[in-house]
Design a protein around this nucleic acid. Structure first.
Length: 567
DNA sequence: GACATCATGAATTGCATG
DNA sequence: CATGCAATTCATGATGTC
């Protein structure tokens, strides 16, 4: 503990503050991370601001206005460092994009008036980007950085780390992130002796060690599958166990999704292609009455998530009350299994009924029937009658509005719904964007499907000023366009069919035209990964699932372009 | 051709057991 | 630690009907 305190003093905190923080943190041997968080809170709270904290000075020195910094820290006083980084970067981004308007970003953020921003992205066109980039000399970059107030040493390290072709914005991002992360890093790199003194549950320590191990370690699925935490369940994590690498910090933010249970090594590979961010595995049974085990790789902040309202029912019986009348007492299910793309045959329902009538009260038969019900996700809709869900029932489970998929064949509805997001789960993750983008966001939506991500944003009441959507299926495009029209969206919708056709040039033109993207969202095809595939479960290199690499390509193009535009 | 219906395992993981 | 068992899974392809 003494070592910890010494470290705090070294970081510039006074002994009084440390004492107060330890006291407030409580416990015999509080975790240093918690103390640091409390210290941070104290040092940035209004009553302790007689002497401005080191952090505020640092942020101001980096070129943010004093008002911005104070405002953000007041607003997010209890946030972690990553949160503040993200928020300030978002503000800076928003300020840049407003361009000549030159509004005070803080007033803009705090004000409730949502005036008409229909012309927010009209007539923006830039030129000579490439020439500017090429003429960017390293010495020039160094001098620019020093002019911006960065210490020479820090600037040159960043230059070295980012490489010769990095833009100024990328380097600024790097320095910023490095400064914000430095305090945390001291603890992650803490010596063994100190580590053992930390009074933390063994499970957490094991996780910590695993995460810090080499990359050879395969990614394991967590149990319970709650990611960084789910509502109404213990185990909420407020810091990422493995921080986001500097190079991947947003904005622009991105959100990638796929099935959790893939062939071995797939998630390791996907993570390695997405900036080594560790996936967040979440089972949607914590959000609705059906399981849905999915992995999400994203660079979103994770603090202050919230659920969309109204929340769905958590059990089968509450979600489908009419089944209660027929539900046999020996079927103990309260949650359904994953909604797939195909349903059970009517023959199965018949076979089950006949068996139950013939062997009334036979526990062995009942056990077998329950197994079949689990396998095919059946619910009880009549006496001895177990039937698959109707499309509208799947819509409800997945968080879509009633009849979202109306207008296409029943077979196609099942297929499209089975391939979709669970809206409440995704919305929970995306909810952190709401305070960051009060005037709405610009979305690049890959593999849009029936628009699960957009429905989530809509239900979060985050305006979509622009959606560029890529979706190969015509019926899905029709459904999504119907949603767009029926909800009276005011933003622009631009549709593409194939991800392959969205090349670097098209991306640049779109981003110039609209001022960039705030969010890149999508889940690439799982056909060749999903366990239900008996025929072609060929892994990430399969015909459809290899489109994952197009997601990466497009994301990287967007982030590169965004870095150039930031200047 | 659109649509509906049906039959078709296996990879992976968790867990208990020895 | 090996082994076996149980549980779960964003699907594909063939066939029939209209």
């Amino acid at each position: 503990m003494d070592e910890t305190i010494a470290k705090f003093i070294e970081m510039g905190y006074s002994i009084e503050m440390i004492g107060r923080a330890v006291e407030e943190t409580g416990g015999e041997n509080p975790e240093p991370m918690l103390i640091l968080e409390t210290l941070f809170k104290i040092s940035t709270s209004s009553e302790a601001s007689s002497s401005k904290s080191k952090l505020i000075d640092e942020l101001i020195g980096m070129g943010f206005s004093e008002e911005s910094v104070i405002k953000v820290i007041q607003e997010h006083g209890e946030e972690n460092l990553e949160e503040i980084t993200n928020t300030l970067l978002s503000y800076a981004e928003a300020e840049k994009m407003r361009g000549t308007e030159n509004e005070d970003i803080n007033n803009n953020y705090l004000s409730d008036d949502n005036d008409d921003d229909g012309n927010l992205y009209s007539g923006l066109s830039s030129s000579d980007e490439e020439n500017e980039l090429n003429s960017f000399h390293e010495d020039g970059r160094l001098q620019d950085l020093i002019k911006m107030g960065y210490p020479r040493k820090e600037a040159s390290i960043a230059l070295e780390r980012c490489g010769e072709i990095a833009s100024l914005a990328e380097i600024v991002d790097f320095i910023f992130a490095a400064q914000m992360a430095r305090q945390l890093d001291e603890f992650w790199a803490a010596p063994e002796v100190q580590e053992r003194r930390i009074n933390e549950p063994p499970s957490r320590r094991r996780k910590l060690n695993t995460d810090m191990a080499t990359d050879e370690e395969l990614i394991r699925l967590p149990n319970p599958m709650i990611g960084f935490g789910v509502p109404k369940e213990p185990g909420l994590i407020t810091e990422r166990p493995v921080p986001i690498p500097n190079i991947a910090l947003g904005p622009p933010y991105f959100y990638y999704e796929n099935v959790a249970m893939t062939p071995k090594g797939v998630w390791d590979k996907m993570s390695s292609h997405l900036y080594d961010i560790k996936p967040e595995f979440v089972d949607s049974l914590y959000f609705c009455a059906a399981a849905r085990k999915r992995g999400y790789i994203h660079n979103l902040p994770i603090k202050n998530r919230f659920e969309i309202q109204p929340t769905p029912h958590y059990t089968i019986q509450e979600e489908f009350p009419l089944t209660k009348k027929w539900w046999p007492p020996w079927d103990k299910r309260t949650k359904l299994n994953c909604v797939l793309t195909c349903i059970a045959s009517a023959q199965l329902t018949n076979r089950i009924r006949k068996r139950l009538e013939k062997h009334e009260g036979d526990p062995a038969v009942q056990k077998d029937v329950v197994d079949q019900c689990k396998k095919w996700n059946l619910v009880w809709v009549g006496k001895n009658k177990a039937a698959p869900l109707e499309p509208y029932e799947m819509e409800r489970l997945l968080g879509f509005p009633n009849n979202h998929t109306r207008g296409i064949s029943r077979t196609d509805r099942y297929k499209s719904l089975g391939n979709s997001f669970q809206v409440d789960t995704v919305a929970y993750h995306l909810s952190v964007l709401k305070p960051l983008y009060p005037k709405g966001i610009k979305v690049l939506s890959l593999f849009t499907g029936i628009g699960g991500g957009e429905v989530a944003l809509h239900r979060l009441q985050i305006p979509m000023n622009l959606v560029v959507s890529v979706e190969i299926s015509e019926v899905n495009r029709n459904i999504f366009r119907s949603f767009w029209e029926q909800t009276n969206q005011r933003g622009d919708l631009i549709e593409f069919t194939n991800v392959e056709e969205l090349d670097d040039h098209k991306i640049e033109v779109l981003m110039d035209q609209y001022g960039g993207f705030d969010l890149v969202i999508g889940g690439s095809p799982c056909n060749n990964l999903a366990g239900a595939n008996r025929v072609s479960r060929s892994g990430l290199e399969g015909d459809q699932s290899s489109l994952f690499y197009d997601y990466c390509r497009i994301l990287e193009a967007v982030r590169r372009k965004a870095s150039r535009m930031r200047r």
